[in-house]
Design a protein around this nucleic acid. Structure first.
Length: 574
RNA sequence: GCUGGAGUAGCUCAGUCGGCAGAGCACGUCCUUGGUAAGGACGGGGUCACGGGUUCAAUUCCCGUCUCCAGCUCCA
């Protein structure tokens, strides 16, 4: 059976339950969504937890009746009259937007009717497993100036087993939440009261992870023909007026005045890279020119949109701008896509979702420019044989874009990489190159990030691995636990050997029981625990316990170093 | 920014229908020297988010502010 139909029917049953409990409530819309369904209601009082329980109970009664879903077609004017009688103002509004003269309504038994395109299951009894999950505000039609309705979210599956599995998955996602794991494992924290919301503090372990990621990126960019640049964090306002940000991005920018000069804390890296491009006359022979920067930017995001590491006010992008000839556009886009895929794979993400966003209504640039840009992006995806969804009109105002979202272990999507084609900034800044025939021409500019922001990516990593990072990324790779204080000397010797082999080591010689120190190392999610006692000293070995319990292996130190190095090498491209 | 819920020790949370603030973990000292997920004893630690108001008395009730959470809107 079609899951969407099932869920849609379930949302009708929920609406019916709500109407029967509170007849004065007005209905919005109630579609199936990716993981379930919702229905919007207009009600003065907020729905409480108890309300949800009562609604569920009423829904079960409706399902038990096994009332049929009956489709009826009536004229639009009849429908408007009908919903007027019912006092369903929002439905009337919907009806007025419908072009056709005939509309369909669905009756559930004799008790409930709703404007609906359908389809539905035959009868309410077909719903076997559902659950109401949460209630939240939502603007009517998603428009901020419209009244806010109350949206009840729920989900529904063909079988109870599938529903249970889904709920378990939700629970699992909650336990992996990077906002919990991050501070718990001492990667980062956000000091909301003291420092401010959306501003991330990397603690030592987070800083090591960040350094590993940064080193990886620098190496890879240099290998692929990018040049590293570094640009200032503050620049004068005039530059942002030229770029258009001052006009179009003002509410997100931190600005300040010193000695009558206005400065902007950079929200983007593009203008800086453009200045470097413009610093001299460029020949077509220099293109494509690829400038890369781990650029830290600050954007004043509204308080309500901030979310852990996913949405912050200060973050570092692995940002590059590629200045190229029109005929280079295709190959550049393709090589960026390859770069993205290689990077994702190295970090352990095997699945991605690709979206192509096209020209929005409000945009700059000629129709032809847009066509060329969109075509190039699309051709690149086709030539790579990659499946993608199209988001009509979702592009940036200066150009179309490809978004590559990575999927984590729980199949959740994370917006990271984006490739944007831009004709506008080259124009605004008057960028040029001298072509083969000696004439001045305008380069095309590609904006692109691979990981997006290092903050967001770190959040994705933590959740993907549930905090148990692979060996090459783990800030502490190996913990040494001497059983007794007497074995400290041997431990220090092993520590030095491992450090010389390039590992990040922690020695836990605290006066705590062995069990307790093992437990804490496991909770810290350190990949390897080496236990050192009398036996190991005598044989010059280590007792190796791999993260997650399991059996302990006695190995010579050299042997352990060999296998661990191999593990790092396999996962890390260094 | 909008709607709703919430803010008590470093963390996880009890509690006070208005009358001296509680536990476990973590931290400190001491005992314990342990072979693969929590050894024991004692101890320190709080402007009950912040600012007003009501009251003999407010952590508790009321108002405002900040922040978080679930969404909406927006986005790397």
């Amino acid at each position: 059976m079609d899951l969407d139909t099932l869920r849609h029917s379930c949302s009708h049953i929920m609406a019916q339950a709500v109407k029967s409990l509170w007849p004065q409530v007005k209905l919005g819309i109630g579609p199936a969504i990716e993981d379930g369904f919702y229905y919007d209601f207009d009600r003065q009082q907020p729905f409480s937890e108890t309300d949800l329980v009562n609604i569920e109970e009423r829904m079960r009664q409706i399902i038990a009746k096994d009332a049929p879903f009956i489709r009826q077609e009536i004229s639009k004017s009849e429908a408007i009259e009908l919903f007027k009688q019912l006092g369903e103002d929002y439905k009337i509004e919907l009806l007025k937007e419908i072009q056709d003269d005939v509309v369909s309504i669905y009756k559930t038994g004799e008790d409930f009717l709703d404007l609906c395109r359908g389809p539905h299951v035959e009868s309410t009894g077909k719903i076997k497993a559902f659950k109401l999950l949460s209630v939240a505000g939502a603007y009517w039609h998603g428009i901020e100036t419209n009244p806010m309705l109350q949206r009840i979210y729920g989900t529904c599956f063909a079988t109870q087993e599938e529903l249970d599995a889904y709920l378990k998955n939700l629970q699992e996602a909650k336990s992996r939440d990077h906002r919990k794991l991050g501070p718990q494992l001492e990667y980062f924290d956000i000091y909301y009261d003291e420092a401010g919301a959306g501003l991330v503090f990397y603690h030592p372990k987070g800083a090591i992870l960040r350094r590993i990621i940064e080193d990886y990126e620098k190496d890879m960019h240099l290998k692929r023909g990018y040049q590293m640049v570094i640009t200032p964090h503050i620049m004068q306002a005039g530059l942002w007026q030229t770029s258009g940000h001052y006009e179009y991005y003002r509410e997100n920018m931190y600005t300040f005045k010193i000695e009558d000069k206005e400065f902007v804390l950079k929200p983007m890296n593009c203008p800086g890279h453009i200045l470097i491009y413009k610093s001299k006359i460029r020949s077509y022979k220099e293109l494509p020119l690829r400038l890369f920067e781990l650029g830290t930017v600050y954007r004043h995001e509204k308080a309500g949109v901030l979310h852990g590491l996913l949405r912050v006010r200060g973050f570092t992008q692995d940002d590059a701008h590629i200045f190229c000839l029109p005929q280079q556009l295709g190959s550049e886009i393709k090589s960026i896509i390859e770069f993205v895929f290689a990077t994702m794979q190295d970090f352990g993400f095997d699945e991605v979702g690709i979206e192509l966003s096209t020209r929005p209504e409000k945009c700059i640039g000629s129709q032809t420019d847009w066509q060329i840009a969109t075509q190039n992006l699309e051709t690149a995806l086709k030539e790579k044989g990659l499946p993608y969804d199209i988001n009509l009109g979702e592009g940036a105002f200066y150009g179309p874009k490809i978004d590559i979202k990575l999927k984590d272990a729980l199949k959740r999507k994370w917006q990271c990489a984006t490739i944007q084609c831009d004709f506008a900034l080259p124009k605004r800044f008057g960028l040029k190159y001298i072509d083969a025939d000696g004439s001045e021409k305008q380069p095309i500019m590609l904006h692109r990030v691979l990981l997006g922001s290092l903050e967001r990516f770190m959040g994705a990593l933590l959740e993907h691995y549930a905090g148990a990072l692979p060996l090459w990324l783990a800030p502490i790779q190996i913990v040494l636990i001497p059983i007794k204080e007497d074995f400290l000397e041997y431990s220090l010797q092993v520590k030095t050997e491992l450090e010389n082999a390039g590992f990040r080591i922690k020695l836990d010689s605290r006066n705590e029981t062995l069990d307790k120190r093992i437990r804490q190392a496991e909770l810290e999610k350190i990949p390897y625990i080496l236990i050192l006692g009398e036996r190991e000293i005598k044989q010059h070995t280590v007792a190796v316990r791999k993260r997650g319990g399991g059996t302990t292996q006695i190995m010579g130190i050299e042997e352990f170093i060999g296998t661990a190095q191999k593990e790092v090498r396999e996962k890390s491209p260094h």
